[in-house]
Protein backbone atom coordinates (compact mmCIF):
# COMPACT_ATOMS: atom_id res chain seq x y z
CA UNK A 1 0.00 0.00 0.00
CA UNK A 2 1.39 3.39 -0.94
CA UNK A 3 0.47 6.48 1.02
CA UNK A 4 1.69 9.93 0.10
CA UNK A 5 2.08 11.89 3.28
CA UNK A 6 3.98 15.07 4.02
CA UNK A 7 5.73 13.82 7.15
CA UNK A 8 6.94 17.21 8.40
CA UNK A 9 3.43 18.60 8.04
CA UNK A 10 1.94 15.73 10.06
CA UNK A 11 4.52 16.11 12.83
CA UNK A 12 3.99 19.87 12.94
CA UNK A 13 0.23 19.48 13.27
CA UNK A 14 0.56 16.67 15.82
CA UNK A 15 2.77 18.80 18.04
CA UNK A 16 0.34 21.70 17.67
CA UNK A 17 -2.63 19.48 18.61
CA UNK A 18 -0.84 18.12 21.67
CA UNK A 19 0.18 21.62 22.78
CA UNK A 20 -3.27 23.14 22.23
CA UNK A 21 -5.18 20.31 23.92
CA UNK A 22 -2.86 20.11 26.91
CA UNK A 23 -2.86 23.90 27.26
CA UNK A 24 -6.67 23.88 27.27
CA UNK A 25 -6.66 21.16 29.91
CA UNK A 26 -4.19 23.00 32.13
CA UNK A 27 -6.10 26.27 31.80
CA UNK A 28 -9.38 24.50 32.59
CA UNK A 29 -7.65 22.88 35.60
CA UNK A 30 -6.66 26.26 36.94
CA UNK A 31 -10.10 27.62 36.09
CA UNK A 32 -11.51 25.26 38.73
CA UNK A 33 -9.01 26.70 41.18
CA UNK A 34 -9.81 30.26 40.10
CA UNK A 35 -13.51 29.56 40.51
CA UNK A 36 -13.00 28.60 44.14
CA UNK A 37 -10.77 31.60 44.76
CA UNK A 38 -13.22 34.02 43.10
CA UNK A 39 -16.08 32.51 45.09
CA UNK A 40 -14.04 32.94 48.24
CA UNK A 41 -13.25 36.57 47.50
CA UNK A 42 -16.89 37.37 46.67
CA UNK A 43 -18.04 35.69 49.88
CA UNK A 44 -15.31 37.24 52.01
CA UNK A 45 -13.45 33.98 52.66
CA UNK A 46 -9.88 32.88 52.01
CA UNK A 47 -10.54 29.97 49.67
CA UNK A 48 -8.23 26.96 49.18
CA UNK A 49 -4.77 27.85 50.49
CA UNK A 50 -3.32 24.62 51.94
CA UNK A 51 -1.94 22.64 48.99
CA UNK A 52 1.29 24.28 47.84
CA UNK A 53 2.08 28.00 47.86
CA UNK A 54 -1.19 30.03 47.84
CA UNK A 55 -3.02 26.72 47.34
CA UNK A 56 -1.68 26.52 43.78
CA UNK A 57 -1.47 22.71 43.85
CA UNK A 58 -5.15 22.42 44.76
CA UNK A 59 -6.35 21.33 41.25
CA UNK A 60 -3.71 18.58 41.29
CA UNK A 61 -4.91 17.42 44.70
CA UNK A 62 -8.52 17.46 43.46
CA UNK A 63 -7.57 15.37 40.42
CA UNK A 64 -5.67 12.80 42.50
CA UNK A 65 -8.58 12.60 44.93
CA UNK A 66 -11.04 11.92 42.10
CA UNK A 67 -8.78 9.23 40.62
CA UNK A 68 -8.57 7.34 43.89
CA UNK A 69 -12.29 7.47 44.64
CA UNK A 70 -14.24 4.26 44.30
CA UNK A 71 -15.73 3.70 40.87
CA UNK A 72 -19.43 2.87 41.06
CA UNK A 73 -21.38 1.74 38.01
CA UNK A 74 -25.09 1.20 38.70
CA UNK A 75 -26.33 -2.36 38.26
CA UNK A 76 -29.16 -1.62 35.88
CA UNK A 77 -27.36 0.87 33.72
CA UNK A 78 -26.17 0.14 30.22
CA UNK A 79 -22.47 -0.03 30.88
CA UNK A 80 -21.03 0.96 27.50
CA UNK A 81 -23.21 4.07 27.28
CA UNK A 82 -22.50 4.91 30.91
CA UNK A 83 -18.80 5.15 30.03
CA UNK A 84 -19.45 6.80 26.65
CA UNK A 85 -21.31 9.73 28.28
CA UNK A 86 -18.44 11.49 30.07
CA UNK A 87 -16.03 10.52 27.27
CA UNK A 88 -18.23 12.30 24.71
CA UNK A 89 -18.65 15.32 26.98
CA UNK A 90 -14.87 15.64 27.17
CA UNK A 91 -14.32 14.98 23.46
CA UNK A 92 -16.80 17.58 22.22
CA UNK A 93 -15.41 20.09 24.71
CA UNK A 94 -11.87 19.74 23.34
CA UNK A 95 -12.76 19.35 19.63
CA UNK A 96 -13.67 23.00 19.15
CA UNK A 97 -10.09 24.11 19.75
CA UNK A 98 -9.11 22.77 16.30
CA UNK A 99 -10.28 25.80 14.32
CA UNK A 100 -9.33 28.59 16.72
CA UNK A 101 -6.48 30.84 15.60
CA UNK A 102 -4.34 31.06 18.72
CA UNK A 103 -1.94 33.50 17.17
CA UNK A 104 -0.32 34.46 13.91
CA UNK A 105 2.46 32.26 12.60
CA UNK A 106 5.77 31.48 14.26
CA UNK A 107 9.04 30.81 12.49
CA UNK A 108 10.89 27.68 13.60
CA UNK A 109 13.52 25.53 11.82
CA UNK A 110 13.04 27.47 8.60
CA UNK A 111 9.30 26.77 8.51
CA UNK A 112 6.39 29.12 8.97
CA UNK A 113 4.08 27.37 11.41
CA UNK A 114 0.55 28.73 11.61
CA UNK A 115 -0.76 28.71 15.17
CA UNK A 116 -4.07 27.22 14.11
CA UNK A 117 -4.66 23.50 13.77
CA UNK A 118 -7.00 23.79 10.77
CA UNK A 119 -7.94 26.95 8.90
CA UNK A 120 -11.09 25.63 7.22
CA UNK A 121 -13.30 28.07 5.36
CA UNK A 122 -16.34 27.05 7.39
CA UNK A 123 -14.65 27.55 10.77
CA UNK A 124 -17.52 29.16 12.62
CA UNK A 125 -20.02 26.56 11.36
CA UNK A 126 -17.68 23.84 12.60
CA UNK A 127 -17.70 25.43 16.05
CA UNK A 128 -21.48 25.62 15.91
CA UNK A 129 -21.72 21.97 14.87
CA UNK A 130 -19.49 20.74 17.67
CA UNK A 131 -21.38 22.85 20.21
CA UNK A 132 -24.66 21.31 19.06
CA UNK A 133 -23.13 17.86 19.63
CA UNK A 134 -22.10 18.75 23.17
CA UNK A 135 -25.51 17.78 24.48
CA UNK A 136 -25.02 14.09 23.58
CA UNK A 137 -22.52 13.48 26.36
CA UNK A 138 -25.04 14.69 28.94
CA UNK A 139 -28.05 12.96 27.38
CA UNK A 140 -26.37 9.59 26.91
CA UNK A 141 -24.88 9.65 30.40
CA UNK A 142 -28.18 10.65 31.99
CA UNK A 143 -30.13 7.95 30.18
CA UNK A 144 -27.55 5.25 30.86
CA UNK A 145 -27.68 6.02 34.59
CA UNK A 146 -31.18 4.51 34.73
CA UNK A 147 -32.22 7.11 37.28
CA UNK A 148 -35.22 9.44 37.05
CA UNK A 149 -33.36 12.45 38.41
CA UNK A 150 -30.54 11.93 35.95
CA UNK A 151 -32.96 11.57 33.05
CA UNK A 152 -34.77 14.76 34.02
CA UNK A 153 -31.46 16.59 34.19
CA UNK A 154 -30.48 15.27 30.78
CA UNK A 155 -33.79 16.27 29.22
CA UNK A 156 -33.49 19.73 30.71
CA UNK A 157 -30.01 20.06 29.27
CA UNK A 158 -31.19 18.95 25.82
CA UNK A 159 -34.16 21.31 25.61
CA UNK A 160 -32.14 24.19 27.02
CA UNK A 161 -29.27 23.76 24.59
CA UNK A 162 -31.56 23.38 21.57
CA UNK A 163 -33.56 26.47 22.53
CA UNK A 164 -30.54 28.71 23.01
CA UNK A 165 -28.76 27.40 19.94
CA UNK A 166 -31.41 29.08 17.81
CA UNK A 167 -30.82 32.57 19.21
CA UNK A 168 -27.06 31.97 19.09
CA UNK A 169 -27.24 31.00 15.42
CA UNK A 170 -29.29 34.04 14.48
CA UNK A 171 -26.94 36.40 16.32
CA UNK A 172 -24.06 34.77 14.44
CA UNK A 173 -25.80 35.35 11.10
CA UNK A 174 -25.79 39.10 11.79
CA UNK A 175 -22.06 38.91 12.53
CA UNK A 176 -21.43 36.93 9.35
CA UNK A 177 -23.25 39.56 7.31
CA UNK A 178 -20.61 42.06 8.44
CA UNK A 179 -17.52 39.89 8.13
CA UNK A 180 -18.57 38.16 4.92
CA UNK A 181 -16.39 35.19 5.85
CA UNK A 182 -16.86 32.02 7.88
CA UNK A 183 -13.16 31.50 8.54
CA UNK A 184 -12.11 32.50 12.05
CA UNK A 185 -8.64 33.44 10.85
CA UNK A 186 -10.11 35.77 8.24
CA UNK A 187 -12.31 37.40 10.89
CA UNK A 188 -9.32 38.09 13.13
CA UNK A 189 -7.35 39.57 10.22
CA UNK A 190 -10.28 41.87 9.39
CA UNK A 191 -10.53 43.04 12.99
CA UNK A 192 -6.77 43.57 13.14
CA UNK A 193 -6.97 45.85 10.12
CA UNK A 194 -10.18 47.65 11.09
CA UNK A 195 -12.28 47.81 14.24
CA UNK A 196 -13.31 45.03 16.58
CA UNK A 197 -16.68 43.48 15.78
CA UNK A 198 -18.08 44.45 19.18
CA UNK A 199 -18.42 48.01 17.85
CA UNK A 200 -20.66 46.86 15.00
CA UNK A 201 -22.50 44.15 16.89
CA UNK A 202 -23.06 45.11 20.56
CA UNK A 203 -26.53 43.55 20.69
CA UNK A 204 -25.34 40.46 18.84
CA UNK A 205 -22.53 40.06 21.36
CA UNK A 206 -24.94 40.36 24.29
CA UNK A 207 -27.19 37.65 22.83
CA UNK A 208 -24.20 35.45 22.08
CA UNK A 209 -22.87 35.91 25.61
CA UNK A 210 -26.17 34.91 27.23
CA UNK A 211 -26.45 31.90 24.93
CA UNK A 212 -22.86 30.91 25.74
CA UNK A 213 -23.79 30.86 29.43
CA UNK A 214 -26.75 28.62 28.63
CA UNK A 215 -24.72 26.31 26.38
CA UNK A 216 -22.10 25.83 29.09
CA UNK A 217 -24.79 25.01 31.69
CA UNK A 218 -23.45 27.79 33.88
CA UNK A 219 -25.41 29.66 36.53
CA UNK A 220 -27.98 31.24 36.10
CA UNK A 221 -28.75 28.52 33.52
CA UNK A 222 -27.49 25.46 35.43
CA UNK A 223 -30.92 23.84 35.62
CA UNK A 224 -29.64 20.41 34.44
CA UNK A 225 -27.72 20.03 37.71
CA UNK A 226 -30.00 21.99 40.06
CA UNK A 227 -29.08 20.17 43.26
CA UNK A 228 -32.05 21.26 45.37
CA UNK A 229 -34.55 19.72 42.96
CA UNK A 230 -32.61 17.06 41.04
CA UNK A 231 -29.94 15.90 43.56
CA UNK A 232 -26.98 16.09 41.15
CA UNK A 233 -28.89 16.29 37.87
CA UNK A 234 -27.45 14.26 35.02
CA UNK A 235 -24.36 13.20 36.98
CA UNK A 236 -26.20 11.90 40.07
CA UNK A 237 -25.01 8.32 39.51
CA UNK A 238 -21.47 9.18 38.50
CA UNK A 239 -18.48 8.84 40.77
CA UNK A 240 -14.71 8.97 40.63
CA UNK A 241 -13.03 10.35 37.50
CA UNK A 242 -16.18 9.98 35.35
CA UNK A 243 -17.81 12.62 37.53
CA UNK A 244 -14.57 14.54 37.26
CA UNK A 245 -14.81 14.42 33.46
CA UNK A 246 -18.32 15.88 33.52
CA UNK A 247 -17.38 18.67 35.90
CA UNK A 248 -14.12 19.29 34.08
CA UNK A 249 -15.73 19.44 30.63
CA UNK A 250 -17.82 22.36 31.89
CA UNK A 251 -14.63 24.31 32.54
CA UNK A 252 -13.16 23.41 29.16
CA UNK A 253 -16.42 24.55 27.54
CA UNK A 254 -16.16 27.80 29.46
CA UNK A 255 -12.58 28.30 28.32
CA UNK A 256 -13.39 27.49 24.69
CA UNK A 257 -16.44 29.74 24.57
CA UNK A 258 -14.37 32.55 26.09
CA UNK A 259 -11.84 32.06 23.29
CA UNK A 260 -14.63 32.03 20.69
CA UNK A 261 -16.15 35.22 22.05
CA UNK A 262 -12.74 36.91 22.15
CA UNK A 263 -12.07 35.80 18.57
CA UNK A 264 -15.45 36.74 17.13
CA UNK A 265 -16.09 40.04 18.87
CA UNK A 266 -12.88 41.25 20.51
CA UNK A 267 -10.26 40.90 17.81
CA UNK A 268 -8.87 37.47 18.73
CA UNK A 269 -5.09 37.66 19.05
CA UNK A 270 -5.03 41.34 18.08
CA UNK A 271 -3.31 43.50 20.69
CA UNK A 272 -4.96 46.94 20.65
CA UNK A 273 -2.83 50.03 19.95
CA UNK A 274 0.17 47.88 18.97
CA UNK A 275 1.43 47.45 15.45
CA UNK A 276 2.34 43.76 15.27
CA UNK A 277 4.24 44.22 12.02
CA UNK A 278 6.98 46.21 13.80
CA UNK A 279 8.11 43.11 15.73
CA UNK A 280 9.81 39.95 14.55
CA UNK A 281 7.26 37.22 13.65
CA UNK A 282 7.95 35.12 16.76
CA UNK A 283 7.69 38.13 19.05
CA UNK A 284 4.46 39.25 17.36
CA UNK A 285 3.00 35.75 17.79
CA UNK A 286 3.94 35.80 21.46
CA UNK A 287 2.25 39.19 21.93
CA UNK A 288 -0.79 37.87 20.07
CA UNK A 289 -1.11 34.81 22.32
CA UNK A 290 -0.71 37.00 25.40
CA UNK A 291 -3.43 39.36 24.14
CA UNK A 292 -5.83 36.48 23.44
CA UNK A 293 -5.16 34.92 26.84
CA UNK A 294 -5.70 38.27 28.55
CA UNK A 295 -9.13 38.59 26.95
CA UNK A 296 -9.94 34.98 27.81
CA UNK A 297 -9.04 35.48 31.47
CA UNK A 298 -11.39 38.46 31.63
CA UNK A 299 -14.24 36.38 30.16
CA UNK A 300 -13.52 33.51 32.55
CA UNK A 301 -13.64 35.92 35.46
CA UNK A 302 -16.96 37.24 34.17
CA UNK A 303 -18.35 33.68 34.03
CA UNK A 304 -17.37 33.17 37.67
CA UNK A 305 -18.50 36.59 38.80
CA UNK A 306 -21.98 35.94 37.40
CA UNK A 307 -22.12 32.48 38.96
CA UNK A 308 -21.50 33.78 42.47
CA UNK A 309 -23.78 36.82 42.08
CA UNK A 310 -26.97 35.82 40.27
CA UNK A 311 -29.34 33.08 41.48
CA UNK A 312 -30.67 30.35 39.24
CA UNK A 313 -33.65 30.85 36.93
CA UNK A 314 -36.84 28.87 37.23
CA UNK A 315 -37.31 26.51 34.29
CA UNK A 316 -40.22 28.38 32.70
CA UNK A 317 -38.31 31.65 33.07
CA UNK A 318 -35.40 30.07 31.24
CA UNK A 319 -37.58 29.01 28.32
CA UNK A 320 -39.33 32.39 28.36
CA UNK A 321 -36.03 34.21 28.09
CA UNK A 322 -34.79 31.96 25.31
CA UNK A 323 -37.84 31.85 23.08
CA UNK A 324 -39.71 35.08 23.70
CA UNK A 325 -36.94 37.57 24.39
CA UNK A 326 -33.68 36.41 22.87
CA UNK A 327 -35.02 35.06 19.56
CA UNK A 328 -37.07 38.18 18.71
CA UNK A 329 -34.12 40.34 19.76
CA UNK A 330 -31.76 38.30 17.59
CA UNK A 331 -34.16 38.56 14.64
CA UNK A 332 -34.39 42.32 15.14
CA UNK A 333 -30.60 42.55 15.32
CA UNK A 334 -30.29 40.59 12.08
CA UNK A 335 -32.85 42.79 10.35
CA UNK A 336 -31.25 46.01 11.59
CA UNK A 337 -27.79 44.84 10.51
CA UNK A 338 -29.12 43.97 7.08
CA UNK A 339 -30.83 47.37 6.81
CA UNK A 340 -27.69 49.27 7.77
CA UNK A 341 -25.53 47.28 5.33
CA UNK A 342 -28.05 47.91 2.57
CA UNK A 343 -28.29 51.64 3.38
CA UNK A 344 -24.55 52.30 3.43
CA UNK A 345 -23.78 49.83 0.62
CA UNK A 346 -20.95 48.50 2.75
Amino acid sequence: MFLTIDLAFIIEKLILIVVVVSASLVIAMYATFAERKVAAILQDRRGPNRAGPFGLLQPLADGIKLFFKEEIIPNFSSKALFILGPALAMLTAVMTSAVIPWGDKVHFFGRDISLQIADINIGILYVFGVVSLGVYGIMIGSWASNNKFSLLGGLRAASQIISYELAMGISLIALLMITGSLSLKEMVLQQQAGHWNIIYQPLGFLIFLICAFAECNRTPFDLPEAENELIGGYHTEYSSMKLGFYLFSEYINMFISSVIMATLFFGGYDMPFVNEASFSPNMAALIGIAALMGKVVMFLFFFMWVRWTIPRFRYDQLMHLGWRILIPLALFNMLATGGVILYFHK
Binding site: G129, S132, L133, M139, L155
Partner: peptide, 14 residues
Protein backbone atom coordinates in the same frame (compact mmCIF):
# COMPACT_ATOMS: atom_id res chain seq x y z
CA UNK B 1 -23.99 17.54 11.25
CA UNK B 2 -25.64 20.68 12.66
CA UNK B 3 -29.13 19.90 11.37
CA UNK B 4 -29.34 16.11 11.49
CA UNK B 5 -26.88 15.02 14.18
CA UNK B 6 -27.14 18.20 16.24
CA UNK B 7 -30.85 19.00 16.20
CA UNK B 8 -33.11 16.34 14.70
CA UNK B 9 -31.41 13.37 16.33
CA UNK B 10 -31.39 15.16 19.69
CA UNK B 11 -35.18 15.43 19.39
CA UNK B 12 -35.41 11.75 18.40
CA UNK B 13 -33.32 10.79 21.40
CA UNK B 14 -35.40 13.08 23.58
Amino acid sequence: IIVYAGAIMVLFLF
